[in-house]
């Protein structure tokens, strides 16, 4: 994990949001905290917490059922797995349809684009959710780092 933007980090630490993330090497419990993001013109221009994404990790997050599980709903250029879903559009070529900042919004909260969507909001304020099963309470579906990793992967899908 590399940190791009020092002032963002300072702000977030002050907010107490990512307390676990600053200590180098802590990885097990760093992840679940919600990192507030700002949408502007249907984009999220700033990387969450100023983190830098890694496309290789992003691909893994995207195709892991307990993580992104994107294959459940989307056909993807992922030959090693079968039975890609069809409720969402194929992801091949998304990078030519959307900018990085648009993809980030669509991942953190697709409902901003389509309030009736089936696609989960992968990094939304857990405080806004109802009847969350106990073990997922207070957690986002994907962590800030995982969001940045998936964004980095998606922009390779030209």
């Amino acid at each position: 994990m590399r940190i791009r933007n020092f002032s963002t980090i300072v702000t977030l630490v002050l907010l107490g949001l990512i307390a676990g993330q600053v200590t180098a090497g802590s990885s097990a419990d760093e992840g679940d905290a919600f990192v507030a993001w700002k949408a502007k013109d249907l984009t999220v221009p700033e990387p969450l917490a100023g983190l830098e994404g890694d496309p290789r990790r992003g691909r893994a997050v995207a195709i892991t059922p307990a993580k992104g599980n994107c294959l459940a709903c989307h056909a993807m250029p992922v030959a090693e797995q079968e039975f890609h879903g069809t409720v969402g559009p194929p992801l091949e070529g998304v990078a030519s349809r959307y900018t990085e900042a648009q993809l980030r919004l669509l991942l953190v909260d697709m409902k901003q684009l389509n309030p009736t969507t089936l696609m989960p909001s992968f990094h939304r304020n857990p405080g806004e959710l109802k009847r969350v099963a106990e073990r997922y309470q207070g957690k986002t579906v994907l962590t800030a780092q995982e969001i940045e990793d998936v964004v980095a992967y998606l922009i390779t899908l030209k």
Binding site: C73, V87, L118, P120, S121, L129, R131, A133, Y136
Partner: peptide
């Protein structure tokens, strides 16, 4: 129609307008 859970879904989002489409191997 009420969205609940960490994935913030409702029965309607899967069963109202997506019947016939696939979630992984399952046809809705």
């Amino acid at each position: 129609q009420t969205r609940v859970g960490q994935l913030d879904m409702a029965c309607s989002v899967c069963h109202d307008s997506n019947a016939g489409k696939k979630i992984r191997g399952n046809t809705l």
